[in-house]
């Protein structure tokens, strides 16, 4: 129901996306993995019309959107159906948590205040922030800010939510609360595309995993198959390196201890 078709993007001479296509089904949670500079964030930003692709097509609900050129009307219509969550939260500093969630409804959709606030309150409750509605972003922790940002992205009840490394800017102990909220959305059947470095999250929450490198999709599979039975060498190496450092390190130490001391 949501398709990216032949997306290309260059920054100067640097080719960032090479004819990337991605097909997402209703209810899918697609995790995009890959090393830094693989183009995963650029792909997501192109899908959110935050970066203009050089070419590419978006298909959603039988409607086509040119990723290079779009009328402001079509874009407004598209944005109502797609939510975006940023790595750095990007909450509006002059609005309370509730104000952040309702701004789009009130300004872009001209929704009456009471109606917008009812939606905002319900969403903030769902992300566990019922008691923080009147707080300004500077008074919230990173995890709380990101949860407000997720509530904001859900305000229009979008069909697809795009997450750009939603936990990368967070202290390790705050990532859990954000991932829990995303998991909760996954359980509700929300269609999502999540660019992430959280392997455990991808393994447990994603239905499908896409592995990108050098602007191309290297491998794409169900989450289970991807982790248990990776096809490409590069994918195996990536999964191994990303998930086994601790255990490898531990094994090395154990091996060192087991070595006979001295000659």
């Amino acid at each position: 129901m949501y398709t990216l078709l032949n997306v290309n993007k260059k920054f100067g001479d640097n080719v960032v996306l090479k004819n990337v296509s991605l097909d997402v089904n209703q209810g899918d949670v697609v995790a995009i993995l890959g090393p830094s500079g693989s183009g995963k964030t650029t792909l997501l930003r192109c899908a959110g019309y935050l970066t203009k692709a050089d070419s590419g097509t978006l298909i959603m609900d039988d409607q086509q959107y040119d990723m290079k050129k779009i009328s402001s009307r079509a874009l407004r219509n598209y944005r109502r159906k797609v939510g975006f969550v940023f790595q750095t939260f990007n909450l509006y500093g002059n609005k309370t948590a509730l104000g952040n969630v309702t701004l789009g409804l009130r300004v872009s959709q001209k929704m009456p205040k009471e109606q917008a606030e009812a939606i905002g309150k319900e969403l903030l409750e769902r992300v566990g922030l019922a008691d923080r509605m009147d707080y300004y972003p500077s008074k919230l922790s990173g995890g709380q800010q990101q949860r407000v940002a997720i509530a904001r992205a859900l305000a229009t009840n979008p069909e697809v939510v795009l997450f750009d490394e939603p936990t990368s800017a967070l202290d390790p102990e705050l990532t859990g609360e954000v991932l829990t909220v995303i998991k909760q959305l996954a359980d509700e059947g929300r269609t999502m595309i999540v660019v992430t470095h959280e392997m455990e999250f991808a393994r447990k929450v994603a239905t499908r995993v896409v592995f990108m490198e050098d602007g191309e999709i290297v491998e794409e599979n169900t989450a289970k198959e991807f982790f248990e039975n990776p096809q490409k060498e590069r994918t195996k190496e990536f999964i191994y390196k990303s998930t086994t450092w601790a255990s490898v390190n531990q094994k090395d130490e154990e091996a060192a201890e087991a070595l006979p001391q001295g000659e």
């Binding site: 935050l50 402001s72 407004r76 944005r79 939510g83 990007n90 509006y92 872009s108 959709q109 992205a153």
Partner: peptide, 22 residues
Amino acid sequence: PIGQLEACYCDGLSFWQAMIHV
């Protein structure tokens, strides 16, 4: 931060609406 302008766009606001409200 420029990210707040991008967030406005994602919220469906125009450049001028983003300027005025945020």
